[in-house]
Amino acid sequence: MPLKNTPQRYGWLSIALHWSMAIAVIGMFALGLWMRDLSYYDPWYRDGPFIHKSVGIILLMMLVLRVLWRASNIRPDDAPSLKTWERITAHLTHLALYALLFAIMLAGYLISTADGRSIEVFDWFSVPATLHGLSNQEDIAGEVHEILAWLLMAIVAVHSLAALKHHFFDRDNTLKKMLGIAANPATPTSAQKEDR
């Protein structure tokens, strides 16, 4: 599999970033929801937030890499069977996912650094506070973090259902492009076959 994207499919770096971030983001949502109700004596009371913050910072670095990689790389062509509204909504959904991920991570950072403390990333390195000491910063950032996380999950659902719809109902190569099993030009996809 090539490193870079080709007109037929995503390269392995895009695929690796997409799926590892997908798993991590959904895991982070579940962890975030769950850890808020832990009792003080729960063994996860400290580890839950520690892992959540550490993974969050790593996800932010991956997101920056991903956006840079996307900007410096071609995008595989959309399946030719896609209707105009499908192209537009798909691309708007992608933009919304990037924007929401960035906003959620920024809000999360502003919660934990509201008092000037830095965020420890797995005892590996720490990220210092920048903007801190705003009045009720941790509360406002917390509300934003939570609301946007729910909104992100709604958009993730739209994105995932659309991918499954294209794979199972339209039988085009939309999902295959991101699975790395999409056909190269020698083996046309079912959608391309139907076009002939």
Binding site: P49, I111, S112, T113, A114, D115, R117, N136, Q137, E138, D139, G142
Partner: peptide, 16 residues
């Protein structure tokens, strides 16, 4: 009551 301050933003958020 929102002005509670225990010198730790995450704890203060929990206390509120």
């Amino acid at each position: 009551t929102a002005s509670i301050n225990s010198a730790h933003a995450e704890r203060d958020k929990h206390l509120r």
